[in-house]
Design a protein around this nucleic acid. Sequence first.
DNA 1: CAGATCTCAGAATGACTGATATTC
DNA 2: CGAATATCAGTCATTCTGAGATCT
Lengths: 141, 141
Amino acid sequence: MAPIQSFDELPTWLLSRAAARSHRILHAELAQLGASGYDFRVLSVLATTGACSQRALGDAAALDRRDISLTVRGLEAAALLSRRPDPQDARRTMVAITLLGQHRLAELSLALERVQRAVFSPLSAAETDTLSMLLARLATG
Amino acid sequence: MAPIQSFDELPTWLLSRAAARSHRILHAELAQLGASGYDFRVLSVLATTGACSQRALGDAAALDRRDISLTVRGLEAAALLSRRPDPQDARRTMVAITLLGQHRLAELSLALERVQRAVFSPLSAAETDTLSMLLARLATG
DNA sequence: CAGATCTCAGAATGACTGATATTC
DNA sequence: CGAATATCAGTCATTCTGAGATCT
């Protein structure tokens, strides 16, 4: 590999810039709906896995234990999910998505589809697939 | 495009995760040397463009006006760059890299090469090139 | 005067760490 | 007792906005 000439040609820099643009678009779209990325990830997990503990939810949604607590309580205040103590294990708080939460998730999912189109509009569908495959291998290290 | 099933298959999510892993590796490597990503970007720009105003430096290093000010003063305190008022325009502060700064940049550049290898080790060289090309087109929008 | 440059103060976000109380 | 769960406290890096001072 040639010595580094300019930082803006570094692959890590290109990755950082592309992700920053993606994040801006994603966040602007979700902010219009009054939601955060955390909100979407939590509702998305709950819709597919059903009721689960906050711990399991945090693992599945890739959220820190600190942030899962805050996010879940915010969503509970908006009646998008319900919480109740686990009768099997009093340490756990079981979380489940509500009907309102499912409608909210459907709304956010449409926004996410718009985001995908906006972010990857510079690429063809085939190129986007290639990129996704390479990114998936990078992300897991 | 199929309806969204799971957030962790979204291309924007893969992009975000890959960038997060890259950032962790980059930051850990720079932290060992007591430097930040801002530091490296500023020194890298100064080494290639020569002396310039803080404004031009901020544009080239993709740094906010707030952060260019803080970063430059920190690097000045470490004697890695020098600042002097522009005799042509008293509004400007001209910044130039010092010899010590060039040595520091060389050290950081070696670290950056290690980072590239670590981040992109899951991919072949050809795949990394393909990825970089796609990311470059994404980053500019 | 408008405009450019630099500085300071603060904030929002994402990701993370330490500590604590409770429970198994 | 050790281990797991949820919560509260704060940190850190990145990015950005508003305001003011100085100068062209």
